[in-house]
Amino acid sequence: MKTIILGFAGGCVRQVTNIFSDQIVSLSEKQLISIEYPGHPLQMHQPLMTNSTDLIQYLSSTIIQKCKNEDFQIVGYSMGATLIPFISEVLNRLGYKPKKLILLSADTPFLEKLYKIDTKSVLSLLIKSGLPSSIQQNKKARDFFITVMKSDLEILNDLSNRIKNTPLSIGDINTFFISGQDDPNTSRNFIYWKSLYPKAKFRTFPGGHFFAFDPKNNWNDYFSSIL
């Protein structure tokens, strides 16, 4: 079974792939496929997207192309996790049903609060998400990632507006939500996602929004067990 990896806002999917590779590669029947968002570091030849419908369609089409008639599961981190229900809905309509969905630090598209996209706020988010100091000090590189993050926040804002009138459904797909105990939004996120997917499984581990990047964290065994 193939495993699709989707990354977080403002970064490179390889950052997420690296923390999963040991768990996934150790299971020989699974094939890891990382999908970079257009305009991000591994897809710089493509234009950035600011419309959620376009990105969801792009990701859905890419998953179908890469998986074809093979079984697959989708793992997403932060923005990638938030996109999964929308992608899954499109895939289901087209007859491509994922076997499993694993959403790590899935942000709720809060209707009452959109993301700020001014440069100062965006740079602060990038630093929190682990932007290396070498990039922070390089204006060209820093400006590139600021532009990427602004584009991704437009996507999340678009999802916030879209979800008002678009009920989501992932049917009976085996679904897992995993978040950090110290992430200030975890409780509210779980309440929101549980209202949509009462049959999903929910689990927290020590740490904040990027809990999975802490090598001292003991979430690896659980993650391996649900793959």
Rank of each mutant, 00 (worst) to 15 (best):
M1S: 01
T3A: 14
G11D: 05
C12T: 11
R14V: 11
Q15E: 14
I19D: 05
I19M: 11
F20L: 15
I24S: 07
S28F: 10
S28W: 03
E29L: 08
E29F: 04
Q31F: 04
Q31V: 02
L32T: 06
S34A: 15
Y37C: 12
H40F: 02
P41F: 14
Q43A: 15
M44S: 10
H45Y: 02
Q46L: 15
P47W: 10
P47C: 12
L48Y: 11
M49D: 04
M49W: 05
T50H: 08
N51P: 08
S52H: 12
L55M: 05
L59E: 09
L59C: 07
T62K: 14
I63F: 00
I64R: 04
C67L: 02
K68A: 14
E70V: 00
F72S: 03
Q73D: 01
Q73G: 02
Q73M: 06
I74S: 01
V75G: 00
S78M: 09
L83Y: 05
I84L: 03
S88T: 15
R93E: 14
P98K: 01
P98M: 05
L104A: 07
S105V: 02
A106F: 01
T108S: 12
P109M: 06
L111Y: 14
K113A: 09
L114G: 15
I117V: 14
L123W: 08
L123Y: 10
S124H: 14
L126C: 10
P132E: 03
S133K: 15
S134P: 00
K139V: 14
F144T: 09
I146W: 05
T147E: 11
V148Y: 02
S151N: 05
S151A: 15
D152G: 04
I155M: 08
N157V: 07
D158N: 13
D158K: 12
R162C: 08
R162H: 09
I163R: 08
K164C: 11
K164P: 03
P167A: 14
P167N: 12
I170T: 15
I170K: 05
G171H: 07
N174V: 11
N174W: 01
T175H: 01
F176E: 10
S179Q: 11
S179M: 02
Q181L: 14
Q181K: 15
D182M: 12
D182V: 01
P184C: 07
S187W: 04
S187Q: 08
R188K: 15
I191G: 00
S195V: 00
Y197C: 05
P198K: 01
K201C: 00
T204W: 00
F205K: 10
F205S: 10
F205N: 07
P206R: 09
G208F: 02
F211T: 05
F211Q: 11
F213L: 08
N217M: 03
N218D: 15
Y222G: 12
Y222M: 06
F223H: 06
L227Q: 11
L227P: 01
